[in-house]
Design a protein around this nucleic acid. Structure first.
Lengths: 338, 338
DNA sequence: ATCATCCGTGTAATCGATTCCATGGCGTCG
DNA sequence: CGACGCCATGGAATCGATTACACGGATGAT
């Protein structure tokens, strides 16, 4: 592959001049510029990003470590992150942690070794020593969706408390009193917050949330199934299951079907994170929708601010309730779904 | 961030020795080795992958350019690709083309500029000049899922002809005669092959595939909706719609619902590419499943073979029919789905 | 006419690794 | 006892870019 030296030779100038042309430095004669450009064209020259990065100590690359690519919420987030990053002149390297802390650490380490300019993380756990070191070590970092208390970096996330309150009120209005939740891992902020918001909203309506109605999940479908099976085996099973993410809702649906029960007639179902498929499940699932595109954009901008020396802002955007048929009641008409 | 020089100074040896220790070169005294390792530990040293890549002319990185991350089939593929690549000591950088050729070219260019060791591509079109140049230019390259005729690189893909035949036989057995297909872009191999397999299978049963029953889609949901609306507006609408990918099936479902029709009673639906959500849609959707994990592994191995100087193999694996309820008939019992 | 300035350009240092080659010490063999 | 070879090690070149610095020539001011 042609290098800058070859271009310089072809154009009959020094490598410095070639570099100046390529970086549109003002001090280059028109004559030299055209010669260099012609040589670049002739040789099909493309600058070596590796060499450039070594010299300039920047890669124009962002690392994005997400907890689970198979979760449509994160896939969508990743897509918008890449879009915004591209608009700002950055590339994105995605690391998929599969909700496994050690895999998360592997990706963080690999990204740091590649000297990415900044890191966008949705932590799968409460924070490894590595993550703390990286944050303290000066690598620009921003948390998105989930964050880690005690690590002082900007956080871009959605606040679901108001939407959860709306959901609980909706359920209460439909006559449901025994509400259960499948929580995410306690080590994640979203795992805790959603339970707390749920409990708080129930308390506001004079309802209790017994421990037996709190299932422990890990944001994966299988855990949603297990938790739901446990609910259904109770002497007094809940009337509603609220899954803290979409994959666990899928698992819950499995478990309910396996028991031969119907949603919403026998039991109602709702989920955190809205995804296109929820419109088409049987029945369409009531969910809490996050402003994914806005979150992605805000996160990338905060990270770019950090990298480029501006002051980044933490951002919290509201999530909102999308009522469909899975909890019964009014929104029974399919047509109104979309 | 500490460099190899700092480690050398701390350990009281030369950088050459540090490098030897790090690359487990045999010619290093035990004494020196422990000193270097201690210094590495003390400084928290991590080798700079950028510098290493510049020197060794390899990045231990694979580029994966897929047509659409939001399509669960590709997401899954990407996940398994990363998994296998990691097992072989490579990282993966994903480029999402969003089914847009110019975006695909952007990512290919960026990946080449970063000097990735090899490229895995599922082309969104018939092949840009850039793609040809890259293939001819000696960058190791493997096509996965889709390929481009005339570009001589290994291809790893699923063969759906037999499964499509099974599907058509299944539909025929259920009494359906008017079968329609929503095709993918003509510029993609999967776009064409699936139509051809469908047409061929129908011919085998003495059925014709009129042009009006071939909808032109682009593998995105919206195009599936449009094509289906056109089918439903025909004087004699089809009894079955077969979508060439899962997103177009989603769009078809939308269109059918919007008309107030029911699946499978009013019209049957089937799709290429099986995904977990199809179990939970209303009704569960009959689909043709690809062996995604095996495809991903085979593709990565072929690429690694190419990179490391071994002889790569093109691989074709059979897809298989998964019957659910969306075409009516026997498989009506939900329990049997899983 | 003289001197300061500015512009275009080239030379060379530099980024952080890897690796070729030279060197000195030591063991072995004739 | 001398020669040879091997081993551990360091010095220095190298990868492909960017960029500080130096330099010569042209231009403008006085």
């Amino acid at each position: 592959m042609a290098s800058i030296k070859d271009v310089a030779a072809e154009a009959g100038v020094s490598v410095a001049t070639v570099s100046r042309v390529l970086n549109s430095h003002p001090s280059v004669s028109e004559e030299a510029r055209t010669r260099v450009l012609a040589a670049v064209e002739a040789l099909g020259y493309r600058p070596n990003a590796v060499a450039r990065s070594l010299r300039t100590a920047q890669t124009r690359t962002l690392g994005l470590v997400i907890s689970d690519v198979l979760n449509p919420y994160f896939t969508e987030l990743a897509r918008f992150v890449e879009e915004e990053a591209r608009a700002l002149g950055y590339s994105v390297i995605i690391g998929n942690a599969d909700e496994r802390p050690e895999l998360q650490d592997h990706h963080i380490r690999t990204l740091i070794d590649r000297r990415i300019d900044g890191l966008l993380v949705s932590p799968a756990d409460g924070g490894s020593p590595l993550m703390r070191d990286v944050a303290l070590g000066g690598t620009p970092m921003v948390f998105v969706d989930r964050w880690i208390p005690g690590i002082d970096v900007p956080v871009v996330r959605a606040d679901g408390t108001s939407a959860v309150k709306d959901l609980v009120a909706h359920l209460h209005g439909l006559g449901h009193r025994r509400l259960a939740i499948i929580a995410g891992p306690a080590a994640t902020t979203t795992g805790n917050e959603r339970v707390e918001a749920f409990r708080e909203a129930m308390r506001g309506l004079g309802l209790a949330l017994p421990d037996a109605y709190i299932g422990q999940g890990d944001f994966q479908a299988a855990s949603g199934r297990r938790a739901t099976e446990r609910f259904l085996a109770l002497a007094e099973p809940p009337e509603v299951v609220f899954a803290a993410d979409n994959l666990m809702a899928l698992g819950a649906l499995d478990a309910i079907r396996a028991r031969g029960l119907r949603v919403p007639d026998d039991i109602a179902l709702a989920a955190f994170d809205d995804i296109p498929w929820f419109v088409h499940t049987d029945p369409p699932i009531t969910a809490i929708a996050q402003p994914t595109a806005d979150l992605a954009r805000a996160a990338v901008r905060a990270l770019a601010d950090l990298i480029e020396g501006r002051t980044p802002q933490s951002v919290t955007l509201p999530a909102r309730l999308v009522v469909r048929r899975s909890c019964g009641g009014a929104a029974t008409n399919q047509r109104s779904d979309r």
